[in-house]
């Protein structure tokens, strides 16, 4: 449900980065620990983009996996959501390094050369 307000922020940032020009595409990185549902984010984009400089733009979503660093054995590892045990030493959960992102990575704008 909060995807609408988060997409509002992403669109505002995209429009402002385009500096008054049209936005052709947005690349957004979403981690599974961000608490955001990708389908809901896409729906929010379809609902909110019309009437903005990003109307008709493509939304590229890059999904990441939860990644951890194990403080006990030093391993860097990825896990599915909900099970964070270090596969090397069995430590119950390491330091979260990735998978919680929700960020606008880049936009595409017309290249006027």
């Amino acid at each position: 449900m909060h995807e609408l307000s988060l997409m509002t922020n992403l669109l505002d940032d995209a429009v402002s980065a385009a500096n008054g020009g049209p936005v052709c595409a947005l690349r957004v990185r979403v981690g599974p620990l961000s608490g955001v549902v990708v389908e809901a984010l896409r729906f929010a984009f379809e609902a909110l983009a019309p009437g903005t400089a990003a109307e008709g733009a493509r939304l590229d979503i890059e999904e990441t996996a939860p990644s951890f660093h194990c403080p006990r054995c030093g391993a860097d590892y990825s896990t599915p959501v909900g099970s964070y045990e270090c596969p090397s030493c069995g430590s119950p959960g390491g330091e979260l390094r990735g998978g919680h992102e929700l960020e606008l990575i880049s936009i595409e704008v017309p290249d006027h050369v």
Binding site: E101, L102, E103, L104, D111
Partner: peptide, 16 residues
């Protein structure tokens, strides 16, 4: 399609 260029933004939706 018109040529495009990519602008890096790298901004979290939760930045504010």
């Amino acid at each position: 399609p018109p040529p495009v260029r990519t602008l890096d933004v790298r901004k979290s939706a939760l930045e504010l």
